[in-house]
Simulated assay, not measured.
Amino acid sequence: MLAANPCPCARSRGARSADCECPSLVRRRYLARLSGPLLDRIDIQVALTAPSRAELRADAGHAESSTLVADRVAQARQRAEARLAGTPWRVNAQVPGPVLRRRWPLPPRVTNLAERAFERGLLTARGLDRVLRMAWTFADLAGQATPGPAQLGAALDLRLPGWAA
């Protein structure tokens, strides 16, 4: 897991950066310290803004219980383990990309968006593999046998925030 502030003062709150006085050049230099090869090894890349008190209160009644989430994760891990039976891997994150693409290929209608992002240079080969692994995890969480376009799209959104096909 990795987390980074958007600026050196750590007072920026994304859209609500009223407390931050860092010039944009300082922010860019600060974030540039996170190298491309390092970021390429991070599966999920999401920019978060600090929630307001009203947002925290409004969300409190809609959150799932930890028990419910833990049960869903346990079931997803069982699905992955069953699919990976007879291999040296137990979870999607451990499967090498070439093996994932060869042994469990997805149809072009599912991978189309990710392949376009790869062709446009928005994803590296390693990044494409990470998107595929996340899509398999989303399918396992949803109780699906294989990822569909929705799971692959969700994985792409987490890998390339703000990307539009």
Rank of each mutant, 00 (worst) to 15 (best):
G143D: 05
F118T: 05
L123I: 04
F118A: 07
R116K: 12
L132W: 11
T137H: 00
A117E: 15
W136F: 04
R126H: 10
A135N: 02
L141Q: 04
A117H: 10
G121R: 09
V131R: 01
L122R: 15
A135W: 01
W136C: 00
F118N: 07
T137E: 00
L128M: 07
R120V: 04
M134G: 12
L141P: 01
R126K: 09
G127W: 11
P147L: 04
F138C: 12
G121H: 11
P147K: 04
M134S: 15
A135Y: 02
D140Y: 05
R133F: 06
W136S: 00
A117K: 09
D140N: 05
A135K: 02
G143E: 12
A139R: 02
F138H: 14
Q144W: 04
E119S: 12
A145V: 05
R126I: 08
F138L: 15
E119R: 15
M134V: 15
R126N: 09
W136I: 00
P147R: 03
A142D: 14
E119Q: 14
T137M: 01
L141W: 00
R133P: 10
T137S: 07
T124I: 12
E119W: 04
L141E: 02
Q144T: 07
V131S: 01
G121F: 08
T124R: 11
